[in-house]
Design a protein around this nucleic acid. Structure first.
Lengths: 250, 250
DNA sequence: TAGTGGTCTAGACCACAAA
DNA sequence: TTGTGGTCTAGACCACTAA
């Protein structure tokens, strides 16, 4: 889950293939080179080539079947794990100017839910940050994030108008795994005020728990997006499925 | 992407591990056996064991780091690709009784969007089915699905109150890959009537395109769930990300 | 320091798709 | 029939974790 040997051969090959796909050398539906062709080209063993292809498959970029060459899947261009965690990075990647303002920053005792999600004892404190995030000059999302103390202490020293995630990474915090729960809720009075919309407008809610390579929680966030401005896309297959559907059991 | 050799050794090992995890032998956070231990136990090579672990990682069940044993990730129990496609199968898996009634079934020319999603020429016909799906006696979702003619011709011969996906699979239709786009929309007047809620209530919308192993579209569906009854969960990591965030660019 | 997973090789046989 | 990807083996060396 860490990123060791970022220059390993199979990663290089995978990056080359991704770049070619992005550049349009292999458009959606196109057939990719065979394992043996690539093995010859890179002077690598077949196993290494298969590892490169497995990396593309894990990102939902290609499809493969025995007997036929691999093909490029269509649909939207996928984003990296890092782009997904950082609103600022994402905004830039879609050609928008990210912005934000702090609505509230607290250092207080954890709520029951926060303690559970961050795996803290009930008496522990958290840093809780509420921000309104903007694309250009339009607010599109409210971010309510709880950090455990050891992360929050870093956060308070940073410029809260910019990308906290990127700054934290520079400070050596490694984000490794995340779990996202997505549903729809009506805007509360506070939501409506912060986003400049009417109460009860549909918002797309993403609750996210992010952990480090050892599985220790780094943040627990509840983000609320303007419903029809932002969407999430997931690809899965028979062999690869990290999506599930839940019922509140109300 | 097909399911060849469903009895291959690595699949057997992966299934055993999943069963043990589900049974609580390895709870969330627990350390799993090492590769060499499993290799000895199954009299398999290390590569085969690694393939089994890769299958669990692809489903977001485990985490791994060099130097330390693999650990079980917490969070909700994951569902299979098949459970995700079939409302009926999903409902049974969460202990609810699935139900449904047909609101409309049409055989007509494809709309522009349907033609694009199903990769049809503009003049082609589709079968379009609108159903209200229930858990117990409560409606929770509206399903609006377009099928290309070769699939739709099978669908019209089936009992539309039950699980079409399961019946289609029995008829040899193989669902291999899917792409899901999730956002929030207000209930239209028709939505509100079918779900017995007030107009403009937040609905969680899932648009889904499912393809066969060769990449040919099998269905294009727009499902609308009661916002706070149903949620979707996604797990991803630095090495495995099939989730992305989209902006309508409005 | 001992044990673990990460990377890579060089083979083998097989099931399947496409021509 | 030819070439493809799927499965499996038996080795090797290395980077990293944890005791």
């Amino acid at each position: 889950m860490t990123a060791p040997d970022s220059a390993s051969l199979y990663r290089t090959i995978a990056a080359d293939l991704k770049a070619s796909i992005r550049a349009g050398v292999y458009p959606a539906g196109a057939r990719l080179p065979s394992e043996s062709e690539l093995a010859a080209e890179y002077d690598a063993s077949r196993g290494t080539i298969r590892q490169a292809f497995a990396a593309l498959a894990a990102d939902g970029v290609i499809s493969s079947r025995r007997g036929a060459r691999r093909t490029v899947l269509g649909g939207p261009r996928l984003q990296s794990f890092a782009d997904l965690l950082s609103f600022s990075r994402w905004a830039r990647s879609v050609g928008e100017k990210p912005g934000g303002r702090v609505a509230r920053l607290e250092h207080r005792a954890a709520t029951t839910e926060e303690a559970e999600q961050l795996e803290l004892t009930d008496e522990a404190n958290v840093y809780h940050l509420t921000r309104v995030r903007m694309l250009g000059d339009r607010p599109v999302m409210i971010e309510r994030t709880a950090y455990p103390e050891h992360v929050g202490e870093l956060v308070v020293g940073l410029d809260p108008a910019g990308s906290l995630t990127e700054r934290l990474e520079e400070l050596g915090v490694i984000f490794a795994d995340a779990e996202h729960t997505i549903d729809a809720v009506p805007a509360t009075a506070e939501d409506a005020r912060l986003l400049a919309v009417r109460p009860r407008v549909p918002l797309l809610r993403e609750r996210r728990r992010t952990t480090d390579p050892a599985g220790a929680p780094l943040e627990w966030s509840e983000d609320r997006y303007l419903g029809q401005e932002v969407a999430f896309t997931v690809r899965n297959s028979v062999n690869r499925n990290s999506l599930s559907r839940w019922h509140s059991g109300r």
